[in-house]
């Protein structure tokens, strides 16, 4: 599902990623660990197409990133969802609107959107908050909205960039269980974190350790 081969990336003269190669199969769960500044976010941004690949090759959910034009990146993002540490949700919109957004942009019919959003909100215990504006929610609830939005499209791959970084320990572990649950439905997950407790929570997961831009 994810194939990365000899990938390097630099911001100007600063080399952030060096000769990264790894493969993740369908339904696999992998942690991307490493200290701050080791290149985790950059790697995830490259895989999500928000940064352009300059050296090496990467294929994700069947999309060869080097060949994917700027105008077609949206096709990749309909198969590959992402959850950010800072949520990136629309605070003034309702929970329902935020979760429904990826389905709306795909032009899916309204009644189907209602059904799928309801199912996802229920699984994340957000059904009662559906009509609330996101800015009225707690940090943990907002993060669950971000996760709900990412999984509502049933993505082939889910990239998570320290999604529990803003949550306390218990909430973070509970959120981890949510990710495991979606992984069991066949979604490949690449989860960036430097929290060893989270890594220990999913013993079956692989860990890709990134130190100063290199995979160890």
């Amino acid at each position: 599902m994810i194939e990365v081969s000899h990938l390097s990336f630099a911001f100007g003269s600063h080399l952030v990623l060096q000769d990264i190669s790894f493969t993740l199969g369908q339904g696999e769960f992998a942690f991307l660990s490493g200290p701050s500044g080791s290149g985790k976010t950059t790697l995830l941004r490259l895989l999500h197409g928000t940064l352009s690949l300059t050296k090496g090759r990467a294929t994700i959910a069947g999309f060869e990133l080097r060949r994917l034009s700027r105008w077609n990146r949206y096709l990749l993002r309909r198969q590959v969802s992402v959850v950010f540490q800072d949520f990136k949700i629309l605070p003034r919109h309702t929970v329902f609107c935020n979760v429904a957004l990826p389905l709306q942009v795909m032009g899916i019919e309204r009644h189907i959107i209602h059904k799928r959003v309801a199912v996802v909100l229920r699984s994340l215990h957000l059904e009662e908050k559906a009509k609330m504006r996101c800015e009225e929610l707690s940090g943990g609830e907002q993060q669950r909205v971000a996760v709900a939005r990412a999984v509502v499209v049933k993505p082939k791959v889910l990239l998570a960039d320290e999604p529990t970084g803003n949550l306390d320990g218990t909430l973070a572990l509970r959120m981890m269980d949510v990710f495991r649950q979606f992984n069991r439905f066949g979604t490949t997950i690449l989860f960036a974190t430097h929290n060893p407790d989270l890594i220990a929570r999913v013993p079956e997961a692989r860990t890709l350790r990134l130190i100063e831009g290199r995979l160890q």
Binding site: W71, Y74, R77, V82, K88, L101, P102, V105, M106
Partner: peptide, 16 residues
Amino acid sequence: QEEIEILSLVGASPAY
């Protein structure tokens, strides 16, 4: 801008 970025991240096409 924020809304545009989010739309782009969730797979909205350039036309959308």
